[in-house]
Amino acid sequence: MSPDQPSPPDVLAEPTHPLLRLAGISHAHGRTPALHDVDLEVGAGTAVAVTGASGSGKSTLLHVAAGLLAPDAGTVELLGHDLAALDDAERAQLRRRDVGIVLQYGQLVPDLPLLDGVALPLLLDGAALGPAREASRAALAGVGLSAAEDAVPAELSGGQAQLAAVARALVAQPHLVLADEPVASLDPAGAALALDLLWGVVARGGALVLVTHDNVLAARCDREVRLAHGGVQHDLDLR
């Protein structure tokens, strides 16, 4: 994949082509095994909940799916691209154009005001400052943070920072969103707002993978993949 070519649009034209495919993923953190032979396929237009007790490997799975962690074994295919075959720059391009990532902690650049911080995926992709800020302004308005445009993350509450992170993940209109406890620190109103935006991705034909402890949130999804001790305990279709 050449870094300057746009990502292939035909991926979404074939609804049977999985947006995310993990096969045989095994990974250990040092000597502690985290994942063992995990398979997962996420097609277009689906929301998948990844659940399990603490230490079951959920966050590790998300990091592997996002291309942030190279697994010890197994293949990761994001939108049809085998991540192992791409170099760092190409993986970075995927992350800023096609995949939105919401992590559990510490994900906003600490010294940038929200307006610039949320615009980062667009800026990194070569957009000019003006249009990028416009898009960022719209995204912040979507999560109700217009008044905090010039604030830096240290001045925000945990919930506000999380909303900003969700806004940033969605600003480039990605096809796939990977989120780790995206609404854990939000009050019900904020959570509802964020979840509506995240489900918007699904409505547009994209896919959503949510790592969560919350059973109510898991029940909102179309599928539940439950992990236990690094392996898949069950893969339920809830429809």
Binding site: N215, V216, A218, A219, R220, E224, R226, Q233, H234, L236, L238, R239
Partner: peptide
Amino acid sequence: AERVLSAQRAAHLRRMRQLQ
């Protein structure tokens, strides 16, 4: 027992999804 508990969880989740 694990299968029983899984099946129960599935039934619950489906009902919760309906309610939501």
